[in-house]
């Protein structure tokens, strides 16, 4: 439904400067009068939705417009008016409703944006379900295991070890600087209680920062809960140093 609404309005916008479209705009005005009631509920998805709609919009007929959902119609409507109202004269009554829409629409945009800009590391979002993050040292253990099996399997000529396996294996071995991956996991797992997520734990484990400052510098998302997690992180780091293998 959201798409439809968007299309209808953007179509209006695209054609607005041409005279024949006035009728269509007028026809929709009554609908847009009812909308402001719902405005405040809207928030996040509008900027994206709007952009997408623009690209697909042009061909759609205005006949679809009356079916729109009020919520979605309003915000795009508000925007459309930015352009549409520039030229055409049917805005006598339509203009007011459009202005109202515009004000609301613009007002809600800034609310949606800041969070996405602030979070430097939004790992959790991308991690698919039923998956578990492995630190380099854990991966090295798993891959070492497989590598040992491979040498047995490799008698079968049809199975050959892909290059990316060797590269990843080498990489994980270089990255694992600990004597025992399990105890590293145990130490870092304690950070979960103070809101450090899997991705951040994994990065701390991989990088093994020497100071708390280094940890905050490299994983800026930790700073958000600095009061609660600074102590535990410091403790964890001192324990990690003990687990480091001497290379």
């Amino acid at each position: 439904m959201a798409d439809r609404g968007g299309k209808g309005w953007s179509a209006g916008k695209g054609k607005a400067p041409s005279v024949p479209n006035q009728g269509a705009l007028n026809g929709e005005d009554p609908a847009s009068f009812k909308r402001p009631v719902h405005v405040d509920i809207d928030s996040s998805d509008e900027s994206e939705g709007f952009i997408e709609d623009q690209s697909q919009a042009s061909g759609k007929s205005n006949g679809k417009a009356p079916k729109k959902v009020p919520l979605d119609g309003l915000k795009t409507g508000g925007k459309a008016s930015n352009l549409a109202s520039a030229g055409k004269g049917d805005s006598g009554k339509g203009g007011k409703s459009f202005n109202a829409g515009k004000a609301e629409g613009k007002g809600s945009l800034p609310h949606a944006k800041p969070p996405t800009a602030e979070v430097d590391l939004k790992l959790e979002l991308d991690i698919p379900k039923n998956s578990r993050v492995l630190m380099d040292c854990e991966a090295a253990e798993v891959l070492q295991d497989i590598h040992d099996h491979m040498t047995i399997l490799s008698e079968d000529p049809t199975i050959k070890i892909p290059e990316s396996f060797n590269k990843a294996f080498q990489y994980s071995k270089n990255g694992s600087q600990y004597t025992d991956a399990k105890s590293v996991r145990q130490v870092l797992e304690t950070l979960k209680t103070c809101g450090v997520n899997d991705g951040e734990i994994c990065m701390i484990g991989n990088v093994c920062p020497e100071t708390v400052e280094e940890a905050y510098g490299l994983v800026p998302s930790l700073k958000a809960n600095r009061q609660t997690n600074e102590g535990p992180i410091r403790e964890a780091l001192t324990t990690l140093v003990k687990l480091k293998s001497s290379k």
Partner: peptide
């Protein structure tokens, strides 16, 4: 399986 994937912000 074990997969390797880089993420934005990762060190």
């Amino acid at each position: 399986c074990v997969v390797f994937r880089p993420f934005k912000g990762e060190i």
